[in-house]
């Protein structure tokens, strides 16, 4: 059969595949997951960029029917698309934790997700411990972290005594069996940072700029000045319906006494993305409230061993 070349970029690897012309998104996605040895596939997706907006490969649509550049190799980024409610409980396998760790770390360093300075320093110290093990003064000499990128630019301000912070954080807070050491340590980054919210910037009717966040628990509206505490939150079980028409996006609360919330996005494409993220996040929200599948039960048992 006729094929085309696809390049897949993960957080720490690049690979190429020959993809059949007729393959759907799911065929390619499954092949990538098998190659990585990843079983907790439901958090992930294949991302591409179109006109400065990210989009995700649809499982039931042919790869080549997507609005991707047809120049070979066709490139996709393999990334976490949905974040867990509770990273420690839900990210079972080491490979899943590893991919989340790398992705969230990068997003914090690139300031794509906001992480307060104190939390950044704490997370940096965990990252160092994950990579180098427990602090040992005979091995870890002064300056051994100089080449590492560990903190967002904003935090690396000369006036901010970060290195002192890490140095004391190292031997004090991070010894085996204390604090966050051990399993489940890495993915905490997502919980401590922005909770895995995908932020986009819709505008309301008056033209005031707002930020919309979609996460594991619902939809949140933020003032751009404060990305940590939402102005308004719509938990999944308090929403009746979500819809868009062109650039207008509508959230209908279950309680009829609460106003319908409307805003305008910059592009129709953004509304499509938001609705997709809503459906996927809500689907996972519902699944978490049902018994674990046999596959997940088995993985958890293995991880405990």
């Amino acid at each position: 059969p006729k094929t085309f070349t696809v390049r897949i970029v993960t957080m720490d690897a690049e690979m190429e595949f020959n993809c059949e012309m007729k393959w759907k998104g799911k065929d390619l996605f499954d092949l990538v997951c098998r190659t990585l040895g990843l079983r907790e596939t439901w958090f992930f997706g294949l991302q591409y960029t179109i006109k400065d907006t990210v989009a995700w490969l649809k499982t039931d649509k042919k790869v080549l029917d997507h609005d991707v550049s047809k120049e070979e190799p066709v490139t996709f980024h393999f990334l976490a698309k949905f974040y867990p409610e509770n990273a420690e409980e839900e990210l079972v396998q080491e490979i899943t934790q590893h991919l989340f760790f790398l992705q969230v770390k990068k997003q914090i360093l690139d300031e794509k997700i906001y992480c307060p300075p104190e939390a950044s320093v704490l997370l940096a110290s965990y990252a160092v411990q994950a990579k180098y093990g427990d602090y040992d003064p005979s091995v870890h000499k002064r300056g051994f972290l100089a080449q590492e990128e560990l903190l967002p630019k904003r935090v690396r301000h000369p006036m901010f005594p970060v290195w002192g912070g890490i140095a004391t954080e190292g031997p004090e807070g991070i010894t085996e069996g204390r604090g966050p050491a051990g399993r489940g340590r890495k993915p905490r980054a997502s919980a401590a940072a922005d909770g895995g919210r995908s932020l986009s910037n819709p505008q309301n009717k008056k033209g005031t700029e707002l930020l919309l966040g979609v996460d594991a628990l619902g939809l949140h509206i933020y003032d751009p000045e404060n990305r940590l505490t939402p102005k308004i939150s719509f938990p999944w079980n308090e929403i009746r319906n979500i819809s868009y028409s062109d650039k207008e996006f509508t959230i209908k609360p279950l309680d009829k006494k609460i106003d319908v919330f409307k805003f305008n996005s910059s592009k129709l494409r953004v509304n499509k993305l938001i609705l997709q993220l809503c459906i996927g996040n809500h689907d996972l929200f519902m699944r978490r409230r049902k018994a674990d599948s046999l596959e997940v039960q088995q993985m958890k048992a293995q991880a405990r061993e």
Partner: peptide, 20 residues
């Protein structure tokens, strides 16, 4: 023409489908 300009997701309806 092909591009759909509307989208809709019934959050409560999805819940009901699941519980059935």
């Amino acid at each position: 023409w092909h591009q759909r300009r509307r989208g809709n997701y019934g959050v409560q309806a999805a819940w009901r489908r699941l519980r059935r």
